[in-house]
Design a protein around this nucleic acid. Structure first.
Lengths: 219, 219, 219, 219
DNA sequence: GATGAATGAGATTTCATTCAT
DNA sequence: TATGAATGAAATCTCATTCAT
């Protein structure tokens, strides 16, 4: 973030080596993992000189930081926009799920890197960016809390926890794709968007007339 | 070569250095992360000589492998047992959620290590153990599929996906605790067990008379 | 990956660190032996940083491989040239002996390393380079075979064995010098060249009129 | 040498673990090389406990020392015996060559170990035992010197050098066998004994009436 | 901006040797 | 004698980072 940025030159003219490096890093991190790859792997993949990586970024860490922040901030912006609109929760959650799934669809490597290297990295990147990551959880939690206040969502399920469950469900779908455990493809991605929202909002159960115990709360 | 196992001698007699090392590794991995800690940190924490780690384990990796497999297999066994019993799905899922949450409650470090270092590590341990990990997902998926066949769960939500969503929701709660984003304590743990099952089975929504679109399927 | 080679720049200009390392390695290997020396010893001797050895060579082994091949290939070339010329065998063998003895005279450390660490190392370097080593034996064997065909050498002594005996005699002289068992110095080196050829070609015996048994073959 | 020796018990009764270890060491050293094998490899090969190696030998080195000395001393004894007898040099040299070749024939692994790990190891074992090794060279040198004094051998070729050439020729034949460069088998071994003596004593050349230059000495 | 040689602090792993039993 | 767990001092190799050009 802190480093030199090209002068927003003529559209496609210059190759913008900084971007080249960033994109190469995504591929390399996704392929080998952050810890297993060397800075030279990034440079090689980008087709630039070793030292250039250090010209644009202060360290190997900073490359991943940049990658993460770029994407996560786009997501935060999307969530805020959605939140500002007068939509039903279900639609809001649907928009968020769509955004994340589409992000994976559009650039699976980048999402793999974020999920694998940052989001759960409690002792490194995840910890560094916990504030930024949390913002997303909090925004979602806010949506849910509001829905509860409006009587659309059950009040017994704490919004913070519900938000985590919702986000965790989506991330796990991506994890399933990343590990090759779930089928991929346009169709599956579309269905997944619906599915995760339907599961969390509507529940997996069919609606037997009365289901008292279920709604009555924990033991 | 590796893992000479003591002959299950007289209960508490010998200190069982192998166990000592394993337990120390959990603490160290949880505190510093697998990549950031050195083998000497494990040895120091266990109070044994450097080389002894290599006497019992072939490599640093093998220590984590052992830790993961020990715990994951206990879980698999639990899931299989639960699955074999004639219980309603909700109770089965509840049992699984309970087991995982209790595991965290009982040994947060170990669960932190498993979730942070193995479960999402697509380029290292996660990949190595994907077969074992998947077994859990598949067993849960099987439960859900059966519930669908019995008409208890909606048939439109693919069981495999639903299983991932359910497991992901739980893991994310643990992630929340690990990162200090969610409140911990006996009470919260108990509530979380109910909450995650209620969310996934019953849904977050209160039951408005009709909600056609919701159940009708994805766009 | 390994062995970036400088562009054969202006003669003496740059110090050529790669060469520096190679030359230092010869001294260190000769002084301490390959197994006893550490890579840091080489770096220290060369006056370069530890890592630079690995910048130019993939491993400690590769340093010795390079050293051996550089020298052995020069010898192979010499032998081939000699072989191509229309000289009497005795002169050819003399040329080979001269080359080897001169090599020792000129750079005793390098020859010590080759003889001590490679030529007899049946389980490591010798085995790796056996093909290259053998070429020399075969070329010499070819010379001897031709001499036998021409009637200059006795036909009863298999050329292959004779070649080994000849080469072994020379190498043992070097071994004698290396261990300090034989006197060294210009004069001795010159004499040795003659001596080894005279021994193998003319034999140690004075020529008693008849020596039937000797020539008649083995029992 | 300094270590415990069994009480010369009933012939074949006890397995004599010390001998077991020594014999196992020969196989292991021959197979993997001294530096590449671990003490545990020796113990495993011998079928004894790790620690027992250290009960009988002070160190890994001492095992090889013992192996070398056992054999080399037998050879020294043989040479001395031969030297004491009133035989023609050619027969004496023949006896030595026979002994060495037979030694290889009888126990190729042991001779491989001696030649590969000791005889040329200028910075380790060779250096340690140089005195013992030299004795053999000196004894042979003495035989040759005597033959020169008697007029049987040419006086111009220094005995010390000639001895080295002779011994080197034999050792190189063994080296050829060790590396698989020369054909082995009873027949070849027998022939080799004759061949090496014939080469060194009689020379490779047929006897052209006059060969003045050859005998006249080095340039 | 761009290059890649040079640096050197670690980290893993190995294994000879010791020692309690 | 016999065992093998325990020790800990190296040694190789890696690689992020620096820097002169």
């Amino acid at each position: 973030m802190s480093t030199a940025r090209p002068p927003a030159g003529r559209a496609k003219a210059a190759p913008d080596k900084r971007r080249l490096i960033l994109d190469a890093a995504v591929r390399v991190f996704a392929r080998q993992g952050f810890h297993t790859c060397r800075v030279s792997d990034i440079a090689d993949e980008a087709g630039v000189a070793y030292g250039l990586v250090y010209h644009y970024f202060g360290s190997k860490d900073e490359v991943l930081d940049t990658l993460f922040l770029e994407r996560w901030n786009v997501m935060l912006e999307l969530i805020r926009e959605v939140d500002a609109e007068p939509l039903p929760v279900r639609d809001k959650l649907r928009a968020i799920a769509s955004f994340i799934v589409d992000s994976y669809h559009h650039d699976p490597d980048l999402m793999k890197v974020i999920i694998v290297e940052v989001t759960r990295a409690a002792n490194s990147f995840g910890d560094t960016h916990i504030g930024t990551i949390r913002e997303a959880y909090d925004l979602i939690g806010g949506m849910i809390a509001k829905a509860q206040a409006e009587g659309v969502f059950k009040p017994e399920i704490e919004a913070r926890f519900a938000a985590m469950a919702f986000y965790g469900a989506i991330e796990q779908l991506l994890t399933g794709w990343i590990f090759g455990l779930l089928p991929q493809g346009e169709e599956h991605f579309e269905r997944a968007k619906w599915l995760v929202v339907e599961t969390v909002c509507g529940g997996l159960e069919t609606r037997p007339a009365g289901h008292a115990g279920a709604v009555s709360g924990p033991v």
